[in-house]
Simulated scan of single mutants.
Amino acid sequence: MLIDIIAGARPNFMKIAPIIHAIQKAEDSGSKLKYRLVHTGQHYDKKMSGDFFEQLNIPHPDVNLESGSGTQAEQTAKIMVRYEALLLEKPCDLTLVVGDVTSTMACSIAAKKLNIKVAHVEAGIRSFDLSMPEEINRMVTDSITDYFFTTSERANSNLKRAGVEDERIFFVGNTMIDTLLKNRSRFMRPEVWDELKLKESNYIVMTLHRPANVDEEHKLKGLIQEIVDHSQGMPLVFPIHPRTAKVFENLGITHDNLHLIEPLPYLEFNFLVERAKAVITDSGGITEETTVMGVPCMTLRDNTERPETCELGTNELLGTNPKSIGPAMAKLFSGSWKKGEIPKLWDGKTAERIIECLNKL
């Protein structure tokens, strides 16, 4: 059985790595599963994709569709056309997609139209916010998926409410946490640690990239100003996303404790996160990692598709109003931030469970 494993953007690489390693391990035990790694090229620069293949020991892709940049529609179309051409020339038995990026939706559609079954890892999560491109990707992908691999009971419930039968839902856990736990002992101190003379629990990591926060100059400036004003002078380390950097350069903001740096590779970034006083972000995946590492996390969004990070973990949803930052920072510095716990099946064995399911199927 040949499985196409689809990866296209930075969040995908952490999710596919343990699946590839689990298939390789199963092959040694006589499994008939084979895989073809398809990189769509959605993220095509080294900092956003190349470093992940090297650091996470992911083999070189068997195919690179080289879709590149473009609008949502342009990128979706290029991925669909190129993946369809690959399937027509060399079909697979199952297309396995992960997460909720453009590549996830585009390859699912292309495969399904050729009557190839689709498996979705991280299926069923919902923000119920249709202004987010990722939510559209999740809904479309799950509407045509055959096998659903889920991270939480909430995701299971979402799928059941949408009419998915129990026998097609497999609650397996979170492959991104597989990667985190496997590599935690390998985290690497980045150069910025020494350059800024950082000390454990004495700095804050920031990441912002969502359009609602960064596309309008006044909104981004307001968020940054509130964070700086309530940081008590603590260093703010800000690996800046290319999208955010384009807007930020026009703001004219400079503060002694605000340090903009290039995006970091996986091992270096998580070294910083694990030792931070807190993380301020609008990313979904980072909230999962901070929950497992026990690091306080503030999410600048009005909703989340990962409610378990708030209900069980260390994350709090602050919304997008800059004025919500001050009270949260006061809570942090008072030492009263919640401790949190790790959600069920986020134990580093998710990929093994996925492969067990695929072998049975």
Rank of each mutant, 00 (worst) to 15 (best):
S152K: 02
H21L: 04
G326Y: 08
R243Q: 06
E262W: 11
H209I: 02
N137H: 11
V279Y: 01
Y147D: 01
D142I: 12
E27T: 09
N213R: 07
L267W: 13
I58T: 00
V38A: 05
F52C: 10
D142R: 11
L65I: 09
G173I: 07
A276M: 06
I6H: 05
A278H: 06
R161A: 13
R161W: 04
A276Q: 01
I20K: 09
A17M: 10
A85N: 15
I109V: 14
I20E: 02
N213F: 15
M48E: 11
G30W: 14
L159P: 04
Q55M: 05
I23E: 00
A77F: 01
W193S: 13
F52S: 11
Q232D: 07
M14N: 12
E153C: 03
E341W: 04
I116A: 03
A119G: 15
G319V: 08
W337S: 12
G124L: 11
L198G: 05
F269H: 09
G326E: 14
D62E: 07
K331E: 11
T309I: 01
C92E: 08
H43P: 03
L300W: 03
K160G: 01
T175D: 09
M298D: 00
R189P: 10
T290Q: 06
E217Q: 10
A85G: 08
N270S: 11
I20P: 00
T207C: 03
R126V: 01
E89V: 04
L65Y: 06
N57V: 00
A123Y: 05
E84H: 11
W193T: 09
L361F: 12
P235N: 08
P327K: 15
V192P: 02
G41R: 01
S231T: 01
D347V: 03
M188W: 02
